[in-house]
Design a protein around this nucleic acid. Structure first.
Length: 441
RNA sequence: GCGACUGUCGUAUAACGGCUAUUACCCGAGCUUCCCAAGCUCGAGACGGGGGUUCGACUCCCCUCAGUCGCUCCA
């Protein structure tokens, strides 16, 4: 089988309208990407799949959409600001980070004892800043959020008081985040503007380990349900040197991208760190009262944090296949699970004369209520099948002369290329059934 | 942010200090066609951007933007 390279995926994405470079006619902007007609459909489908699982299937998870721009104190409380307003040094040996003004740079590393391993003092300006109002001064400086999680923590009290949730419960949010990355890399894998799908699960201290393993299992299973090859997914546990300062335990789900194993989603036990910080900085009481036991506590948080845009790249990488058919011809096919395929069904007249085109257009319109459809009458039928294969359309419906007399059509399956004769009246049911049984080849 | 390399139609490419910048695939219009990229005709489409050298620059030089690889970074 031909190797799936990033070049091939980038090329397909541009050619077929999945993803373009931002501001391309002006020479492009590094680390920014636009989602074309098929790309936005794929991205929305992945987002909707996640949202449906999290807020509709599971118990006790509610949704939220918090603002991208937040009070600057949020980022002081979270620790984001202190980490870039003060020059920092890293120990190259143990990766520990220190404020340059608080340690002796000539001395051995206080953490691991290694000598002369400090980097030069640097400012880490990972947050984009801007100004509210038309006057630029320090007082009006605000930031674009570098993660969606803080919006959830800050609204914790509001959600508890307004939606009758009881611990343990979760808050889910999908939204854009921004990081002023020093290097952007590997197509859309790391970009300055990206979308996150995060769920913060609030639980009683002491139950956090249970919920941590619960969510680890659920999140990996979710990718299996999306049709991703299990052999392309694996766990990566953060050891002590990789653990963020707020985390008690952290695992990443990694995916085998064309450039190697990379992080797709993080499951982190963030303890009560964030709520405690916000309680301290806001001076508002963020404790939770358990009415049954009459206990008051700050909940622990288990976070599932997935990159939506990374999910798009995963879906493309996982689905991409170049096949050599039995007759020696080549085809490129995207094996998207029907749940996320940008187009569900294409309707194609075998030829475009003798009323076949008219019949097909009418059929295509009638299917629109149930599926995302596409109509194409242009060129030989085989060519149109290949075009649909290349954008990952799971089903093609072909109208021929027999259709005109008995209202049956050919239903052609993308992965197997097999065809069955189906009455038009059974089409929707057949496609729905096939979707339920779908197994990625 | 540092170093090395690379920029020609959507993709992959060819050539050249000087005639209308080559070819294939893709794409569009038409003909043909009763199920998997067939064929024929026609058509659209490119030298990343700016500056310099030169009678003349896609070609040489400088800057810039973008990309690839390695380091760094990824609280």
């Amino acid at each position: 089988m031909a190797e799936t390279t990033m070049d091939k995926i980038v090329s397909l994405c541009k050619r077929r309208g999945f993803i373009y470079q931002s501001s391309e006619i002006y020479g492009g902007l590094a680390g920014s990407w636009d989602y074309g007609p098929l790309g936005v459909s794929l991205k929305n489908n992945i987002r909707d799949f996640w949202w449906r699982e999290m807020t509709q299937i599971y118990d006790n998870i509610v949704g939220l959409d918090s603002a991208i721009l937040m009070h600057p104190k949020v980022w002081e409380a979270s620790g984001h600001i202190s980490n870039f307003t003060d020059p920092l040094v890293d120990c190259k040996n143990c990766k520990a980070r220190f404020r340059a003004d608080q340690i002796d740079l000539e001395a051995p590393c206080p953490n691991c004892g290694a000598k002369e391993t400090f980097t030069k003092p640097r400012n880490f300006n990972l947050m984009f800043s801007t100004h509210i109002g038309s006057v630029e001064d320090e007082g009006s400086k605000i930031y674009l959020r570098p993660e969606t999680a803080q919006g959830i923590y800050v609204d914790f009290k509001n959600v508890v008081q307004s939606s009758r949730v009881k611990v343990p419960f979760g808050i889910a949010q999908v939204g854009k985040s921004f990081r002023n990355e020093i290097t952007t890399k590997s197509f859309i894998f790391r970009s300055v503007e990206f979308e996150q799908m995060e769920m913060q699960f609030f639980c009683k201290p002491g139950t956090d380990d249970h919920w941590f393993s619960h969510w680890r299992e659920e999140r990996l299973n979710s990718y299996h349900r999306m049709g991703i090859k299990p052999s392309s997914l694996r766990w990566h546990k953060h050891d002590d040197t990789e653990l963020a300062f707020y985390a008690k335990e952290a695992y990443d789900i990694q995916f085998l991208f064309p450039m190697g194993w990379q992080e797709l989603e993080g499951i982190h036990n963030r303890t009560d760190y964030d709520l405690t910080q916000h309680q301290k900085f806001s001076t508002k009481d963020l404790t939770y009262l358990d009415q049954e036991t009459n206990e008051r506590f700050i909940p622990y948080v288990v976070e599932t944090s997935a990159g939506l845009t990374r999910n798009v790249l995963m879906a493309l990488s996982d689905a991409y296949e170049e096949q050599t058919l039995e007759n020696g011809e080549e085809r490129t096919v995207l094996h998207f699970h029907p749940l996320i395929a940008p187009v569900m069904v294409a309707v194609l007249p075998l030829v475009k004369k003798d009323g076949l085109a008219e019949y097909s257009e009418k059929l295509e319109k009638s299917l629109r209520e149930d599926f995302v459809t596409f109509y194409d009458q242009n060129g030989a039928i085989g060519r149109r099948y290949r075009r649909m294969d290349e954008i990952g359309t799971p089903y093609c419906v072909t109208v021929d002369y027999q259709s005109l007399s008995d209202d049956t059509v050919t239903l052609r399956y993308r992965d197997s290329m097999q065809q069955v004769r189906v009455p038009v009246s059974e089409l929707v049911g057949r496609i729905r059934a096939a979707n339920k049984e779908y197994v990625r080849p």
